[in-house]
Design a protein around this nucleic acid. Structure first.
Lengths: 343, 343
DNA sequence: AGCGTCGATGCAAACGGTTGCCGGCAGACA
DNA sequence: TGTCTGCCGGCAACCGTTTGCATCGACGCT
C-alpha cells in the first residue's frame, strides 16, 4: 500500500520530462505555451498528466499576486433573496476562472469585519458586499483599501463605490400604484431598516407616491429587519394603531409573509380584508398561501451583474465607480384584491 | 493624494520596529509570541497595527501547508435545502478559523470535476461534497487523494468515506405510516433519482413499509431530479396510470409541490382528494398552499455536523471514516388528511 | 575568572511557482 | 567555413512567511 506521497511539484514534472523547471512552467501555462517547441510542450504535458500534477495555487498566487478568488459576504445565505444572487455571481466568476469565498455576517459589524479581514488575508482579488448600510463603517474602510469592491443589493449614500442594486424607487412606486388602482385609499408601508438603502429608498418612494396620489390616511413603519418575525411584530403595531388600513406595501416578501400572518391571527384575511404586496419575488413566492403579489427583482441578474462589474474592476482598478440599477416588475397574484365594497 | 501603495510586508513591520523579520513573525503569531520579550512583543504589535499590516495568507499557507479554507460543492445553492446546510457548515468552519469556498455543479460531473480541481489547486484543507451519486466517479477519485473528504446529504454505496446524511429510511417509513394511519390504502411513492442514496433509500424504505403493511395497490416512480418540475412531470405519469391513488410520499418537498400542482391541474385537490407528504421541511414549507406535511430534517445540523467531522479529519487524517445519520421527525400540516369517506 | 545556562533574537533555508534576461545552437547565407 | 539571426530553453531572482538552528550577552555559580 503506497502511502499517499506528497503531490508532485513542478520540479518533479520537469525532471521526469527532462527539461528545466521553467520550461515545465511555461508548458503548463496557456499564455506561455506558445513559446515552446510543440514537441517539448507535448512531452511535458503528458508527463504532468501521468504524474497527476496539479499546480499549487498558493505558490502561483504568491508570485503572480492574483489568487483568482473573490470574497462575497451576505447577511445570511439562508434568506431566500441571496441564493439566486450568490448563484448569479458564482456563475460569472466561474466562467472567468475565479472561485467564490462566501460568508454570512448576520448583520453583525464585528463579524463582518473579521470575515472581510480573513478574506483580505487570503488575498482575494475583489469583494462583493451585500450587507452595506447607508453609512457603513466597514465599506468606508474598504473603499480606500486596494481591493476592488462592489456593493450588491444595498448601497451607501455617498457614492464613490460601484454597486448593483434593485430599482427600489420604481418598485415601491409600482406597488403603491397597484394598490391604488385596485381602489385602496388607506395604505401603509412596512419597510425594512431605514439604515439600509433599500429600506430608505422604498420608503421614500412610497411616501412620495402616496403624496402624489393625494392620499391622506397613510402610515409608514420601520421593521427592525427584513425578515418574517420583524414583519409580524411590526404588523401587530400597525394593525393596532391603524386598523382601517386596507392595503400595505411591504419592504420585501419575508416581511409580507409576517404581515399576512399577523393579520390572519386577528381574523383579518388576505386578500379579502387586506391586500399586501411584497418585494423581490423570492423563490416559491407564487406558491404561498396566498400567492404573493410582489415586485419581481431578477435576483440572479443582480449577482451576475455585480460579478461582471467586479471582474472589470479587477482588470482595471482605476475604472470609475458605477452603480447599476436592476429594474423590477409588478407580478400580480393572490395577495392583493379590491377592497371590500362596503369599504 | 497618496497612491495606494502596496500593502506592508512583514519586512516593513520588522524594519519599522527595529527587529529582525523573524522576530516580527513570532510576535504576530499567537503560538510563538511567548518566546519574545514582552516589550519587544508589544512594540512589534503596535507598529504592525500602525502600518495596517495584514499577513499574506498565501505566503503563510505556502510555508505551513495549511490554507485554512475548505471547499464545499452543492448541486445548486438555489435549491432550498442547501442554504441552511451551507450555513451550518459555514458557522462551524468560521469558529474554527476556516473559510468556505462554495460552488454549484448542477449535477454536472464535468463541472463538478473542474470545480473540485480548482479547489484542490487552491489548496483547500478539506472538501465537503453534497452531490455524490451512489457510485460516484468523482468521489472515487477523491477518496484516494490526500484531501480529507466528507459527504453531505448523500453518500455512496460502498463505504469508506465519511458522510453526514439524513436518516432516509426512518423518514420514509414514518411518512408512509402516517398516510396509512390516516386511512390511506392506495399509496404511491414519487422519489428522486435512484442513483442517489436518498433517492434509493427512501424508495427502499417505502417499498418495505408498504409490504409490511400488506398494501397491494401501490406504485413507485422515479423523478429525474429532486425539483418541482420533475415532481410535476412524474405526477402526470402517476395520476394517469394510477388514478385511484389517495396518498403519496414524495422524495422531497420540491417534488411534493410539483405533485400537488399536477394534481390540482386535474381537479384533484390536496388534501381533500389526495394527501402528499414531503421530505426535509425546507424553509417556508409551512407557509405553502397547502402547508406541507413533511419529514423535518435539521438541515443546519447536517451541514454543521459535516463540518465538525471534516475538522476532526483535518486534524487527524488517519481517523476512520464514519457516517452519521441525522434523524428527522414527522411534521403534520395541511397537505395530508383522511381519504374521502366514500373511498 | 571561567564556564554553563538560558532567554531573546538573528540567520538563512525552505515552501512551489513565474518570468526577465541571457546564452547556445541550428540553419541560412555569402 | 565564418557570421548572423531566431528560436528554445536554462538561470536565478523573487513573491512573503515560517522555523530549526546558531549566536550572543548576561547572569549565577564555583
Amino acid at each position: 500500500m503506497a502511502a499517499a506521497r506528497r503531490s508532485p511539484r513542478l520540479k518533479d514534472v520537469a525532471e521526469a520530462a527532462g527539461v528545466h523547471i521553467s520550461t515545465a512552467s511555461r508548458a503548463l501555462n496557456e499564455r506561455t505555451a506558445a513559446l515552446l517547441n510543440p514537441q517539448t510542450l507535448e512531452r511535458v504535458r503528458e508527463t504532468a498528466d501521468g504524474l497527476g500534477y496539479r499546480v499549487n495555487g498558493m505558490a502561483r498566487a504568491l508570485k503572480t499576486r492574483r489568487s483568482l478568488s473573490i470574497g462575497m459576504v451576505v447577511p445570511d445565505i439562508t434568506n431566500p433573496f441571496f441564493p439566486p444572487t450568490v448563484r448569479g455571481a458564482e456563475d460569472v466568476l466561474d466562467r472567468a476562472g475565479y472561485s467564490l469565498l462566501l460568508s454570512s455576517t448576520d448583520n453583525d459589524l464585528g463579524k463582518a469585519r473579521r470575515q472581510v479581514a480573513a478574506m483580505l488575508e487570503s488575498q482575494v482579488d475583489g469583494l462583493l458586499l451585500a450587507m452595506a448600510l447607508r453609512d457603513d463603517p466597514l465599506v468606508n474602510e474598504l473603499r480606500s483599501g486596494n481591493a476592488p469592491l462592489v456593493l450588491v443589493n444595498r448601497t451607501i449614500d455617498r457614492g464613490g463605490v460601484s454597486a448593483v442594486v434593485p430599482d427600489d424607487f420604481h418598485g415601491a412606486l409600482e406597488a403603491a400604484e397597484h394598490l391604488y388602482s385596485l381602489g385602496h385609499r388607506r395604505l401603509a408601508f412596512v419597510g425594512g431598516p431605514l439604515a439600509t438603502s433599500n429600506g430608505a429608498r422604498r420608503r421614500a418612494s412610497f411616501d412620495q407616491t402616496v403624496a402624489r396620489l393625494g392620499l391622506k390616511e397613510v402610515a409608514a413603519l420601520e421593521a427592525v429587519a427584513f425578515d418574517e418575525d420583524a414583519g409580524y411584530a411590526t404588523a401587530q403595531d400597525l394593525l393596532t394603531r391603524h386598523p382601517r388600513v386596507t392595503g400595505v406595501v411591504a419592504g420585501n416578501d419575508l416581511l409580507a409573509i409576517g404581515i399576512i400572518a399577523a393579520a390572519a391571527e386577528r381574523g383579518i384575511a388576505c386578500p379579502q380584508d387586506i391586500s399586501v404586496v411584497g418585494f423581490n419575488d423570492m423563490l416559491l413566492a407564487g406558491r404561498l398561501q396566498p400567492p404573493l403579489t410582489t415586485i419581481r427583482i431578477p435576483q440572479y441578474d443582480v449577482g451576475a451583474r455585480a460579478a461582471e462589474l467586479l471582474m472589470s474592476l479587477v482588470d482595471d482598478p482605476d475604472r470609475n465607480p458605477e452603480t447599476v440599477l436592476i429594474s423590477g416588475e409588478l407580478v400580480i397574484r393572490g395577495s392583493t384584491a379590491a377592497p371590500r365594497a362596503a369599504d
